[in-house]
Simulated scan of single mutants.
Amino acid sequence: MTDEQQAAGTVGHPYVGMWVTGDGRIRHELLADGRYVEARGDRERAYTGRYAVSGDHIDYLDDTGFTADGDFVDDVLHHAGMVLRRAAARR
Rank of each mutant, 00 (worst) to 15 (best):
R90G: 15
G9Q: 01
D62F: 12
A87F: 02
G9M: 00
P14W: 03
G22R: 00
Y36C: 01
M82A: 13
A87H: 05
M82P: 10
V20S: 10
H13F: 08
V37C: 02
F66H: 11
A39D: 09
L84S: 02
T67Y: 07
E29N: 12
R35Q: 07
T2P: 07
D71T: 15
A52S: 15
E44Y: 07
I26F: 14
D42C: 04
D59T: 15
D71I: 14
R27E: 09
L31G: 06
L31T: 12
D71N: 13
D3N: 10
R90M: 13
E4A: 14
P14H: 05
A68R: 11
L31R: 14
T2L: 00
R25E: 14
D3M: 08
H28V: 02
G65E: 01
G70A: 06
V11I: 13
V83I: 11
M18L: 15
D42L: 11
A87K: 09
M18G: 14
V83A: 07
Y15C: 05
M18K: 15
H78V: 11
M1L: 12
A80I: 11
M18A: 15
D56I: 08
L61H: 10
T64G: 05
R91M: 12
L77R: 03
E44V: 15
T64N: 11
D59G: 12
G65D: 05
D71S: 14
G12H: 04
D23F: 04
A39C: 06
A87I: 03
V37K: 06
A88R: 13
L84M: 02
G65C: 07
V20C: 03
D59N: 10
D23H: 01
A32L: 02
G65K: 01
R40V: 11
R90N: 15
L77W: 00
V11M: 10
V11H: 13
G49W: 01
A52N: 15
D63M: 00
T21V: 09
H28R: 05
Y15S: 08
P14A: 00
H57C: 06
Y47S: 10
G24C: 07
R45G: 00
H28T: 05
F72A: 01
F72K: 02
G22K: 02
R25D: 13
D33V: 09
E44C: 04
G55L: 03
D74Q: 00
V53T: 08
V53K: 00
T10M: 00
